[in-house]
């Protein structure tokens, strides 16, 4: 007797992308659970991480989650591949340091200013290359962090190769712990929401077929600029936060590591889902930290993982989970 596996969507009527007709409490829980539980889990996590080391890993994870989210948002909203998340991170990191050291602004103020202002600087740097596509844009983004790092090295401004030290830290550990987590959650849901509006729909269409969007009387450059600004704001926040956390900024703020690990997180979690990259960061970054003793070998490890996933399982975890959750699978006789 031949059997085959059948996949059926769960019988919840989806009227529109985000309006559900709910008939019972259990259905309501079913719909709400995937977003409520992870949020609660994340918010409770700092309370149950005992050691300072674990706290730092959690924070590092959140920082990479922001970079991964930023990478994914650029990819979804413009169809462009960035190889230089380090640019956003570095610009944010250095602007926070300068604002704090030279202008004496407190961390909470520098965070806001360097997120908004740093993103403006980063966007202005990338803007001339926005009409480019594919490898051309990838090359530009690859070049920028290298260029800024070399320029700082060569001119010895901003502390040169030694970096800048003595930057103020956060007022207390709770701010330190929760600030970045809340920002990750807020950013993820805000961007998801944005992509579901008509504005976001136009953004997503640009990566599908930019010519048809232009022929629809829409200026795609404006949309790309907004997308890059939002993405770089995330990266800049991550950089600024990191600077205050370690009270130091150096050329490592432009390192290649910051560009490639977020891509790996995004691919593992599922490109284009926004939540996926965050999930990916929470899997990959702690793993990478566990093998920190291996030195640079851990970069080899996650680079190869990234290649394997792109080649063999490009779907990503989030899409997989979504499918499993929304569909019933059963064996039926043929």
């Amino acid at each position: 007797m031949a059997k085959r596996r059948e996949r059926i969507d769960r019988p919840i009527k989806v009227l529109s992308e985000d309006i559900y007709a709910l008939e019972s409490v259990s259905r309501m829980i079913y719909v709400a659970a995937p977003s409520v539980f992870p949020i609660l889990f994340l918010l409770l996590l700092p309370l149950f991480t005992p050691s300072l080391y674990m706290q730092r890993v959690l924070i590092l994870t959140a920082v990479y989650a922001l970079l991964a989210l930023s990478w994914d948002f650029i990819a979804v909203a413009t169809g462009l591949v960035s190889l230089g998340q380090a640019l956003f991170f570095g610009v944010g990191a250095y602007s926070a340091a300068i604002l704090n050291l030279h202008f004496g602004l407190p961390p909470m103020v520098t965070l806001v200013v360097s997120t908004l202002g740093g993103a403006a600087i980063a966007t202005a740097l990338v803007a001339p290359c926005l009409p480019l596509r594919g490898i051309y844009f990838a090359m530009t983004t690859l070049v920028y962090p290298l260029l800024l790092a070399r320029a700082i090295e060569a001119t010895a401004v901003l502390g040169g190769t030694d970096g800048l030290v003595g930057i103020a830290s956060f007022p207390n550990v709770w701010v330190e712990r929760y600030l970045v987590l809340v920002f990750v959650l807020g950013a993820t849901f805000a961007l998801r929401r944005l992509l579901r509006t008509d504005f976001g729909l136009v953004m997503r269409s640009i990566s599908d077929n930019d010519q048809a969007v232009r022929a629809s009387a829409i200026n795609i450059t404006v949309y790309k600029l907004i997308a890059v600004y939002l993405a770089s704001a995330l990266g800049c926040f991550a950089g600024a936060y990191f600077t205050h956390l370690y009270m130091f900024v150096g050329l490592s703020a432009f390192s290649l590591d910051l560009s490639i690990l977020p891509i790996a997180c995004a691919v593992i979690g599922g490109m284009g889902t926004l939540v996926g990259p965050v999930l990916g960061a929470f899997i990959l970054v702690p793993l990478a930290e566990m093998v920190r003793d291996l030195g640079t070998l851990r970069i080899v490890f996650y680079s190869l993982l990234l290649v394997a996933l792109v080649l063999f399982k490009p779907e990503g975890l989030m899409n997989f989970l979504h499918r499993k959750y929304q569909q019933i699978e059963r064996w039926v006789q043929v």
């Binding site: 591949v81 594919g134 490639i260 080899v300 290649v307 792109v310």
Partner: peptide, 15 residues
């Protein structure tokens, strides 16, 4: 698939 091509060569090079 340019995105994947770039990621694969870049990540293999880095590895």
């Amino acid at each position: 698939m340019p995105i994947s091509e770039i990621i694969v060569t870049f990540a293999l090079g880095t590895a």
